[in-house]
């Protein structure tokens, strides 16, 4: 029931964002509000079986603030650095690529999704495949360092820094 209401509320909020400045009732017209509420309820009823109830911990507002902090501090500078890195490699053509396996030891799909997206947008790495049983990630690394190749699930400190800890803090 809580999952149903949360989905309906989120859908309604998105509809309101897409139809601002359409009428006199503080930014929206009455027709838009009514049809938005009806569509939000219909969509929530359709996807009720897809969104299971165990994802309710993401409704905690503390996690949203943590996610915002994560995007502003460790993520955005890493993204800028990634672009300088790619620009350097495009201009000089100096690459040393390879596919390495890391095991971040995350338990949930949401955390793994966030980690994989972060890895793709940060310097020199791109997530290629995932082992769905053990939650290991296979990462394409554009500049392989020799000292990271000693252990078999490679040490993720060289590849993605502190991101697995952040993913665990925000999503689990």
């Amino acid at each position: 029931m809580i999952a149903f209401l949360a989905t309906a509320f989120g859908t309604f909020l998105l509809y309101l964002l897409l139809t601002t400045a359409s009428g006199p009732l503080f930014l929206w017209s009455k027709e838009e509000l009514i049809i938005g509420a009806i569509f939000a309820l219909i969509v929530a009823a359709i996807v009720r079986k897809i969104f299971p109830a165990e994802n309710l911990r993401l409704l905690n507002p503390k996690r949203w603030f943590l996610l915002l902090a994560y995007i502003i501090w460790p993520f955005f500078p890493a993204m800028a650095k990634a672009n300088i890195d790619v620009a350097y490699r495009v201009i000089t053509g100096r690459i040393n690529p390879g596919i390495v396996k890391i095991s971040p030891k995350l338990k949930t799909d949401a955390g793994l999704t966030m980690l994989a997206n972060s890895i793709t947008l940060t310097p020199g790495t791109l997530s290629v495949d995932v082992d769905e049983e053990t939650n290991d990630l296979y990462v394409h690394w554009i500049n392989v360092k020799e000292e990271a190749l000693e252990k078999m699930p490679r040490d993720y400190k060289y590849i993605c820094g502190e991101f697995p800890d952040w993913a665990r803090r925000v999503m689990e």
Binding site: P97, G98, I99, V100, K101, V128, Y138, V144, L149, R154
Partner: peptide
């Protein structure tokens, strides 16, 4: 296959 790869764990 990745070109010029030094290591390929997935393979």
């Amino acid at each position: 296959k990745p070109a010029r790869a030094v290591v390929d764990d997935l393979e």
